[in-house]
Design a binder for these strands. Structure first.
Lengths: 189, 189
DNA sequence: AGTCAAGCGGACACCGTGTCCGCTTAGCAC
DNA sequence: GTGCTAAGCGGACACGGTGTCCGCTTGACT
């Protein structure tokens, strides 16, 4: 179990990190910054969180779990019951909401290669793959990462900031993509 | 115009960098490594190439230009003449070949956010966007980055290495994706 | 041969990372 | 409340990579 001062410091670290990420963007925040803002030493910071990504992941965790819960046991079309293409479209919409709300965190936690190593990616992957299987799409293992690629935080922020697209337009494009997923030979049937 | 010794050093730098990238993977090669292997000082290296990405980009340039040429003026289905969905499928196939042949370079040049800032991305974007316009797809501006996302080098190497997928399977998934691009209301028509 | 600017390269300062170790303090037993 | 102990703390430190600066060298042109 965790000592009281340790728990207090964990809270202070997370609070300070959240503010800094929001203010300056995760990639521009150093571990030193966080330690100073939280009023703890560098050693204390590293004791719990090996790097910036771990802190961002901890901050994201709640939100991601909540979405995961809704995917597993929520109402359709997000939860079970709706046709696979509709569930995929609903998943995309929910991810756009999540990216929109926490872009600065995701950009700190799931950037570049490390994106694939997070538990969250594994979860999204299993979920979407099961939808593809249900839709009887050929070779779901190859398609699943292709369909998850546009949800990379770099892509989303490029579309939002550099391209000036609204969340709605991005969600719309993803929705059309989701609905185009059909079994081989079933198109124009 | 460029002095003879300068041109010689440029060649030595590019040659040395190509070997190091292939041997150790671009992200693990430091500017110092390249300078030493090329037999030049750090100052000389920085004079021409501001960072590792610039070197990798220079090495990729030839191959990318060649593909761009084929897209503009080559035979169908890559070049003009074929239906948009087929041209998109051919583009995906060509990109898979390029990624397969030069993954270590692309991983050095077009990783993370910087991918979107390269001239190459702009070219691919214009090309695919024009195909979407020709296919009368709604909101091509939002869809184009979505369709280019799976070509991010991180995604490709994840599929190849962590997932053990063959280039053919990846290309197959992308081909099916390309063929599912159709005008609104035209599906199942 | 002389001039001079382009080119060169190593030394240097800086920044962020991650570790290590002596000090502090919470938690507990009595 | 006192004393013990291990968990927790934090600053100092070493390291590695980056990018710049400036005195020296050398190619190119006359």
């Amino acid at each position: 179990m965790e000592r009281a001062d340790a728990a207090r410091n964990r809270q202070r670290i997370l609070r300070a990190a959240a503010e800094l990420f929001a203010a300056k963007g995760a990639p521009n925040v150093t571990m030193e910054d966080i330690a100073r803002a939280a009023g703890v030493g560098r050693g204390t910071l590293y004791r719990r969180f090996p790097d910036r990504a771990a802190i961002a992941t901890a901050l994201l965790d709640t939100h991601e779990r909540e979405l995961q819960e809704r995917l597993l046991r929520g109402e359709p079309p997000l939860g079970p019951g709706a046709p696979p293409a509709e569930r995929l479209a609903a998943f995309y919409a929910a991810m756009v909401e999540l990216l929109e709300a926490h872009a600065h965190l995701v950009l700190g936690a799931e950037t570049g290669r490390s994106r694939f190593e997070t538990g969250a990616y594994g979860f999204w992957r299993v979920h979407v793959r099961s939808l593809l299987v249900a839709a009887r799409v050929p070779d779901p293992d190859a398609l699943v990462d292709v369909l998850l690629a546009p949800l990379a935080p770099e892509v989303y922020t490029y579309q939002r900031q550099d391209r000036g697209l609204s969340p709605e337009r991005i969600a719309g494009a993803l929705r059309r993509l989701a609905r185009s997923i059909e079994p081989e030979g079933d198109r124009r049937a």
